[in-house]
Design a protein around this nucleic acid. Structure first.
Lengths: 319, 319
DNA sequence: CAGAGCCCTGCTCATATGAGCGAACCCTGA
DNA sequence: TCAGGGTTCGCTCATATGAGCAGGGCTCTG
């Protein structure tokens, strides 16, 4: 049936419109409508079917706020996600965008974290942006999932991030001072022996909800990539790494990549991340389309907070 | 409940949007949805209620053509009409407007006139415009309801109008040559005795559907007013005449006005018009708001074909 | 004009749905 | 700590609704 084709004359048309309004807008039952218009309820049902299939009645799901609900729902469904929030903003500037996505993610976290949860936080600029917008949180333990990756242009670091959230929440914080990536495996092993680090790692398996960073394995699209030495980049590139999820490397087929470099990273492991019930990432920018696909395919990430252009790209919708 | 206010966080919001889409767009049942989302069907129903009342789901009735269906339906309901067609056109020029309304009215007539009907037509520019747009009609008798009111600037007259429609329809025509208003009652009486006139009048009571002219009793808003002598205008004005429906005068309270002038008019009477099942008028122009109200209040006119501005004015909606 | 298809209508019966109810679960203030 | 008010949840049962079907009127064709 063609949308917007309607057989019958104007009177039929107006009758159908009347009935559609009674039904959809006024919320009357078909029996009542049939009664009012002296029709059988079957006739009313058929006219309503016709009204919908001919496009006479248009139903749209919208919302005055910044969240594109329909797109969110479709993204969630299409990718099989537990959560998807698409913020509809014309913002292009990365910092301003982070602010908006951070707000949405913070609202989401406030909503979904209950007293029974254990929250894990990785280091990422987007996660920092989220914590800055966070105003309330159930009293839960907060666990640091990765070492810090301090950059000269960013004052916040992983530790402050966790401490800040734990203070807000009122729950205990499991945090440590260590870099995300160290020069060799031995150093990493030694650091993991450190009491605070070991303590945090010990809590990884109890984490039920986490917010992580998501990078595309290329220059400027992954803080970790940018911080790595050329040799490591190359090695991981050869292994087919497409995305990094807060230190977990993932190849195009969605499989975690184990390599010598992995041993040098102080962060939650792929297996431990996989065990977490909800893992949320906050990607933005068109360059991350493939990284998001891969992260979702891996099953490690099952929640996304993003913006309209990336969401549409993920759905293969040309804007 | 405020429209566009929604309690709950973004996840709830997206969940509700998902469910709304499943229900309204995909047409799934609430039980199926409940099953899919692991909710009770009651919860689903409540979320849907909330989605509607919070304005998250917006249902609009529209139609690509020229007819504003929603407005038509509302007008029909508000005025208690049998038919209402509102043509949405930006047209201002009266002649072009008549053309558009004529088309809509012609479509309506084609649709609603069945072989069992007897069609009555009065003289009016708008009725002429309709007949010019008419392309098909069930084979019914066509009865002339009023004398002609030929004006120098209008070539068509009442007789041609009826003949044209009867030819289209294939049914018999009952028409006569006489003016709509004559100088005195005696002349009128004499004319009514004329065989063709008497024949047509004899068919008035069998008419089941009619299209009539509707004027506001003021200069330029009623062809009949403009054709009358000052004395008659004055007399009818004193009697409180607000509208004329093809020669039937109606006062502000919706009652037909009987006067000496009435006797000078060769046209269907108020009682005869009242007996017709469907009487359709085609008013346009903001000056006719009160005339339409009165005509509808009188119960004589129960169908309207008009344009958006007048329809909105009738519904007291400021544009 | 008979018959074959076709569409439109309203029916039956199984299923979906809504109104209203009581239980459980908060908060909140004493 | 506990009582009270308000809120949310899922139940029961009566009602509304949909799928599918059969009858009747229509057109088209031979």
């Amino acid at each position: 049936m063609e949308p917007s084709s309607f057989a019958g004359g104007p009177a039929q048309l107006v009758l159908t419109a009347s009935i559609a309004r009674r039904y959809y807008v006024d919320g009357r039952s078909k029996v009542e409508i049939a009664d009012e218009f002296r029709l059988s309820r079957f006739k009313v049902a058929r006219l309503l079917d016709q009204a919908r299939s001919s496009g006479l009645v248009r139903i749209e799901i919208s919302h005055p706020g910044a969240i594109d609900l329909d797109l969110s729902a479709r993204l969630q469904e299409a990718l099989g996600l537990r959560r998807a929030i698409v913020v509809d903003t014309p913002e292009e500037d990365p910092a301003a965008l982070r602010l908006q996505l951070g707000k949405a993610a913070a609202d989401l976290l406030s909503e979904i974290v209950t007293a029974e949860d254990v929250l894990g936080l990785a280091w990422a600029r987007a996660v920092t942006a989220m914590t800055e917008q966070l105003t309330s949180l159930a009293p839960v333990p907060v666990v640091q999932l990765t070492g810090a990756l301090t950059r000269p242009d960013v004052d916040a670091n992983s530790v402050e991030l966790v401490r800040h959230v734990a203070r807000l929440s009122g729950g205990p914080a499991y945090l440590f001072y260590a870099p995300l990536v160290v020069p060799d495996a031995a150093t990493a092993r030694a650091l993991r022996q450190q009491p605070e680090v070991a303590d945090a790692i010990g809590h990884f398996e109890s984490v039920t909800k986490a917010v992580v960073g998501l990078g595309s394995w290329e220059a400027g699209q992954s803080t970790l990539f940018d911080a790595m030495d050329d040799k490591a980049r190359e090695q991981l590139g050869r292994r087919g790494v497409v995305a990094d999820i807060s230190g977990v490397f993932v190849s195009a087929d969605g499989e975690p990549v184990q390599s010598r470099v992995t041993d040098r990273v102080i962060a939650i492991s792929a297996a431990q991340m996989d065990a977490i019930d909800e893992v949320i990432a906050i990607p933005y920018g068109m360059a991350k389309v493939e990284a998001v696909r891969v992260a979702v395919r891996s099953g490690l990430v099952n929640g996304i907070v993003t913006h309209t252009p990336l969401a549409k790209a993920l759905l293969d919708e040309v804007d």
